[in-house]
Simulated assay, not measured.
Amino acid sequence: MKPLRLAVIGAGHLGRIHARLLKQLEEVEDVQLVAIVDPVEANRTAVAAEFGAMPLASHEELYSLVDAAVLAAPTNLHYPLGIDLLNHGLHLLIEKPLAPNTEEADLLVKQAKAKRRVLQVGHVERFNPALAVVQPYVARPKFIEAARASTYTFRSIDVGVVLDLMIHDIDVVLSLVRSKVVQVQALGLAVFGPHEDIAHARLTFENGCVANLSASRCSFEPTRKMSIYAEAAYAQVDFGACQAKIVRPSEELLSRLFDVQGSSPELQADVRENLFSTYLPLEEIQVERGNAILDELTDFLTSIRSRRSPVVCGSQGRDAVAVAERVLAKIAAHRWTGAQEGPVGPLATPASSVLRGPEWAKVDEQTPAPAAPPVAPTPARRKAS
């Protein structure tokens, strides 16, 4: 069997990780890392030399050299690069998000189907073993809370925190709930640039489930946690620490036979002493640590060879983008003062009258400060379907 020839497009942080793991897979899979593509010569040369691949400046040099590619370029390049690579018959793993908007995501999915190519999206948390171990306990979830936060890394700053971090939890929630989103509420704050760096969203589903999602990329404490409340159990997943806990209420509680108001002092004492052993038994589930990105790449290779759909296919990546687009639309429309002329969108306060000169000096108190420019509303986004 001929080895699958692969390239990594984008020699940044994630691209280098993909290159290292593909090189590692060469020892156990019939694959070959052929090329590293990046327009910055220093980046592509360094990564290619480290992993024994060919450095290329343009993806157009790949067409006859490889069978598949991992696209880890900036989000705004996912569509133009992805559609060109699909047109030339390459299988693609595109890092999350699939595209910056639903329109481009739809076109990528459509083209992959037309060309009969595998289109996988890099929603890596689906391969997190901590999520896998709790899924059998939380069928038909009723309420989900997720918090995802990091420090400011200066990566993915071409998009805001919704498409950078929250998109992970949107995808996981959609995979768990399996129902249509009927209502979205959201707000966000820009801290460093024009895009939101902090965001909160509430999703209501057709089946009654509700999900509260929060994301920040300027947090002092990194967090990747999700709490899932289902019909017969509650699960807590720590994606970062790869830990999982399950609480399964006793039959007495599930059957609503526990009389809270009529309970005796003795029963109350028993509940306090045995709350998480008898009434709400808490179990920390053993999680075997793995490498989620490695598992994701292995799934990509298996999907190509077996001609099956990957765990996270293009259509699922598209659905996550559609929900993210609705969240962004609500963030863009949020009015912070309630006044028609007040600040709208992630920029909650008007621009400062501080002069941003080389000395970062304030305007002289004797000189009238220039009026703050009006805050323009964020351009309207295409309504997701």
Rank of each mutant, 00 (worst) to 15 (best):
S309P: 02
R308W: 04
C313T: 13
R305I: 00
T302G: 04
L328Q: 10
P310G: 07
A324V: 07
L328N: 12
V323C: 07
A322V: 05
V311Q: 14
R307H: 13
R308M: 11
V323I: 13
A322M: 07
D299W: 04
V312E: 06
A329Y: 06
I304H: 03
V321H: 02
S306I: 00
R326D: 13
K330A: 11
R305S: 06
V321S: 00
A324T: 07
A329K: 11
Q316M: 08
P310A: 02
R307M: 06
S306E: 15
S306D: 15
L301W: 04
S303T: 07
S309E: 15
S303H: 06
V311D: 08
R307F: 06
I331T: 01
E325D: 12
R308D: 04
V321E: 04
V312N: 08
P310T: 04
R308V: 09
R318E: 09
S306R: 12
F300E: 07
R308P: 00
S309M: 14
A324M: 04
S315F: 09
R326I: 03
F300P: 01
I304T: 06
A320L: 10
V312M: 08
V312F: 05
I331W: 01
S306T: 15
L328V: 03
C313D: 15
R305K: 14
T302H: 14
R326A: 15
S315M: 12
T302R: 14
G317Y: 11
